[in-house]
């Protein structure tokens, strides 16, 4: 089963390596991974899509990383999910009108037009991107790049980057030799 995990982490060099290392260790393939800024300065937000038998365990190990502030598996939650694809398709003059019409159905945009090709930008639910690509394929896809999905829980429930600090959690001193 595919899982979508959202993680917030300090924007430090090497943090991506630490995160990816946990998945690699378990032999889990990462379907897609997107990282970017969040609403807080210095905090990155990552959406990871992966498949594995025990993703829960990896999620908890992710949380154990010192630089990771929050981890949520949003697979079962109601989310807004988006992905962008850029697609370069063969577009000789004869098919351009048809291409543009197809794009309109998916709300895709023409990002660039060359003498014989067109770059189309598709934004939407990952499944919508899939369907649009299916339609474009017969025209001849020369190049394609997808961003991987980003996800956010719907409604007012937020996993904001600011961690809730617990005042009562002061570390006890380590036990000395008895």
């Amino acid at each position: 089963m595919k899982h979508t995990i959202v993680a917030l982490m300090q924007d430090h060099p090497g943090v991506l390596h630490r995160v990816v290392s946990l998945f690699r260790r378990r032999g889990y393939n990462i379907d897609s991974l997107t990282v970017g800024r969040s609403e807080l300065p210095g905090v990155s937000r990552m959406t990871i899509v992966t498949e594995g038998s025990d993703v829960d365990q990896v999620t908890r190990q992710l949380f154990r990383l010192i630089e990771v502030l929050k981890v949520v598996d949003v697979t079962e939650s109601a989310t807004v999910e988006r992905e962008i694809a850029l697609v370069k398709v063969n577009a000789p003059g004869s098919v351009r009108a048809e291409l543009v019409a197809c794009c309109a159905v998916f709300g895709a945009r023409t990002a660039d037009l060359g003498p014989s090709t067109m770059v189309i930008e598709i934004t939407g639910e990952p499944s919508e991107v899939d369907r649009c690509l299916d339609v474009l394929r017969p025209f001849g896809i020369k190049e394609m790049m997808r961003t991987g999905r980003i996800a956010m829980i719907r409604g007012s429930l937020a996993h904001e980057a600011a961690p809730e600090l617990r005042a009562d959690e002061k570390p006890p001193l380590l036990a000395l030799a008895g």
Binding site: M9, Q10, L65, I66, E67, V68, L69, P163, L165, R166, D168, E169, K170, P171, P172
Partner: peptide
């Protein structure tokens, strides 16, 4: 500066 490190003791 360890906002992500909050071991729970209790």
């Amino acid at each position: 500066q360890l906002p992500g490190y909050r071991p729970r003791y209790h």
